[in-house]
Design a protein around this nucleic acid. Structure first.
Ligand SMILES: [Mn+2]
Ligand SMILES: [Mn+2]
Ligand SMILES: [Mn+2]
Ligand SMILES: [Mn+2]
Lengths: 217, 217
DNA sequence: ACAAATTTTTAGTTTTGCCTAAATTTATTT
DNA sequence: AAATAAATTTAGGCAAAACTAAAAATTTGT
């Protein structure tokens, strides 16, 4: 699998959560920042390789083989992100670009040993689960901060938006994974929330609260 | 710089030691395992980028810019090899292929932090010097085992041939970097040598002795 | 010095992954 | 049920990096 093919598999993998009965060409094109005609070309190539199926005009679906390959790439991406944060002093908003490159390095031993070296982490720096060697993904229950009611508490366990902008926003307010917070107030007008964190009160917009995952206590 | 361009720069860098007044197209082709016509094409492209100069039929020479880039790639290659051996349980005969991939990852911070994480190593697992961020290379004095006389002693500090076959040959006889050995006998007929290592006598062919560097004591 | 051998370059193709423009199919309105 | 709009595919091309075959330049041998 080439770098480009792997990126398509990854994109389609992520989009399948949203498009259960076939990922549209245009959705892939947008995700890959390319043109629909290029996507059509690649879909043909990938279906020739039996990593996905498609009926004309009906979108793409990963085969079992394609699914496994996509998860292997995601495993590598997340292990590398963990390495960068845990060992190389990267911040969680700095890792994604480099991991996009590292995820395509081919070496079974490398990734197996990296996993061991990191102590078999379960999640990456953004709280996303790291698939195991067989492609099993452990899903942990979590909900968005925006879905909590006043009086409820939880521990930050992940982000839905992992853009540098959002991660830096969280940094600025002292929010990081593992921290506990309690919902003190919900503003009816704009759905912003006042939460308690480390004994301080902070206000979080609805947009912010809709992108932070908590594990409810 | 693309992956392919970087590989050409690296090849030409290594060949310049041998071809001081211009690296011939054919030498590059052999090193890169490609055809001379492909090399000509690439030389044109690279001279357009001002990383090398060439007069037709006169071979290629790196410019200062090309030299710096080549050394930056070599720095990455050797740091990654060190990482694989020091942290990920790779043997010295297993690292080269993976480092060939890793050396093209683009991130200044990554390589700076990797260097720090490894404790600023001076040499890679094969005894080759690791260029610093400015491209300075510390050359340590060393000579081939084949050049020692009977009675002389030295510490293994590097290999001239870093093929897996030679490295495994050294492993088999218990020879690794840092070990001390003494020349007991030189066979006039085939130039093989009997050396003492860890209190044992071992015989090394001229081919073997011509590829092992020692620092004389 | 000049013919022969070798090296290097040029010319013309191929493959991959992308593009634009046009054609086709599917979905949505009226 | 058409007509219109949107999505998708097809057709034709481009650039990078490789290739083969042929031409040109350089080097070597006599
Ligand atoms: Mn990422
Ligand atoms: Mn992540
Ligand atoms: Mn190497
Ligand atoms: Mn090395």
């Amino acid at each position: 699998m080439t770098l480009s093919e792997e990126n398509y598999l990854k994109a389609i993998y992520h989009l399948e959560k949203q498009y259960k009965e076939g990922v549209p060409t245009n959705a892939i094109a947008e995700e890959m920042e390319t043109k629909a005609s290029s996507v059509t070309d690649m879909i043909k190539k990938l279906s020739g390789k039996k990593v996905l199926t498609h009926k004309k005009y009906q979108g793409a679906r990963l085969t079992e083989k394609g699914l496994l390959h996509a998860k292997a790439v995601i495993r590598k991406h997340r292990l590398w992100e963990s390495f960068l944060v845990e060992k190389l002093n990267f911040k969680w908003d700095e890792v994604h670009e480099v991991a996009e490159q590292l995820e395509h390095i081919k070496s079974e031993k490398l990734i197996r040993e990296l996993d061991r070296f990191l102590g078999y982490p379960k999640t990456d720096p953004h709280g996303d689960p790291i698939p195991d060697e067989e492609g099993n993904i452990q899903v942990q229950e979590k909900e968005l901060l925006s879905q909590l009611e006043v009086g409820e508490r939880g521990i930050c366990v992940g982000v839905r938006d992992s853009s540098a902008a959002f991660l830096q926003y969280l940094d600025k307010y002292g929010i990081s994974l593992g921290k506990e917070l309690a919902v003190l107030h919900k503003e009816a007008y704009d759905e912003s929330m006042v939460v308690e964190l480390d004994g301080k009160k902070i206000t979080i917009s609805n947009q912010g609260a809709s992108n932070l995952y908590l594990k409810q206590k």
